[in-house]
Design a protein around this nucleic acid. Structure first.
Length: 282
DNA sequence: CAAAGTTCCTGCGAGC
DNA sequence: TGCTCGCAGGAACTTT
């Protein structure tokens, strides 16, 4: 999408999780995409008029890109079966938005559950956007164990729930919270503040957790994300991180930590599944 | 029945 | 007593 001019936007419904902003299509038609950034799990597409398309994939959203060749093919054959899985070319049941570009390519936003978000940020309003304003630090930025300790020092909340709190650190979802805690040997139900020393400095375990959060996310990105069902990149390539799970979705299977010999358990915390090894996670 | 995300609401208890 | 805050849990959104 980068560097291309939007020639047409087709909305197949009036909302995802929230209604599309007023005149969304007309306000972005004719604009070109100057740069693309990410903040937490939000995508930000900077347009040439200073406005920003804000997008979130929710649980099941995906963008699929079709080059002009592919687009021509679809338009001539009306072929609805493609190698893109649920993004069945154009007009699949869950293809909600189509961005058409000046070079003939098309980006399709597909989202069966419609937990995703699409909004248009007006010039200068990025800092005050309600979805962005209370986000915590980026794990790949200058985030430190010290910073994490500060956020957790008075928290009685379970550490797993704290990791999922986007005010503590952004980008850690349910899978990666489970994996990072498992690698760190920390019990998910442990009170957050017990990982911080009285003087406010991180304990050894919290330092490990900080390192492992970054490591888990880096590895997941490297192999293209987690395909629990069908996470795919813009070319339809499936993510591979699922093959690297050591705890998540492994209930009743042996713990893979060296010399542990424990068995992975599944519990529920705040309505979310947590997988842990009660033997090596304390 | 459970699911990868996020926000909002309610009810409860602690502390001032 | 009343107020605020933090926290836990649940609901909501929807389809597979």
């Amino acid at each position: 999408m980068l560097g291309r001019r939007i020639t047409e936007v087709i909305l197949r419904r009036d909302n995802l999780r929230f209604p599309f902003p007023d005149e969304f299509a007309s306000r972005i038609t004719g604009r070109s995409v100057d740069s693309i950034r990410r903040r937490a799990k939000y995508l930000l597409l900077n347009l040439d008029d200073g406005r920003i398309i804000l997008s979130h994939l929710g649980m099941s959203g995906r963008y699929t890109l079709f080059d002009s060749e592919k687009v021509k093919q679809f338009e001539t054959t009306k072929n609805e079966v493609s190698r893109f899985g649920s993004a069945t070319g154009f007009e699949g049941r869950h293809d909600h938005v189509e961005f058409r570009f000046d070079d003939g390519s098309v980006a399709v936003y597909t989202d069966p559950r419609r937990f995703g978000i699409m909004d248009l940020i007006e010039v200068g309003e990025e800092q005050i956007h309600p979805l962005l304003e209370s986000l915590g630090p980026e794990p790949f930025g200058d985030w430190s164990a010290k910073q994490l300790a500060k956020k957790l020092q008075n928290k009685t909340t379970n550490i797993k729930v704290a990791l999922l709190d986007q005010r503590v650190v952004v980008g850690v979802g349910n899978i990666y919270a489970c994996e990072a805690l498992h690698r760190s040997g920390i019990h998910p139900q442990r009170q957050s503040k017990t990982l911080v020393r009285k003087d406010g400095k991180p304990t050894k375990k919290l330092q490990r957790l900080h390192e492992n959060v970054v490591q888990v996310l880096e590895q997941a990105v490297e192999v293209g994300g987690s395909s629990l069902n069908d996470f795919a990149d813009v070319n339809g390539t499936l993510g591979y991180f699922g093959h690297h799970f050591q705890a998540y979705d492994r209930e009743d299977q042996p713990c893979l930590q060296a010399n542990c010999g424990g068995t992975i358990e599944r519990i529920t915390q705040s309505g979310r599944s947590t997988f842990l090894c009660p033997r090596c996670q304390r």
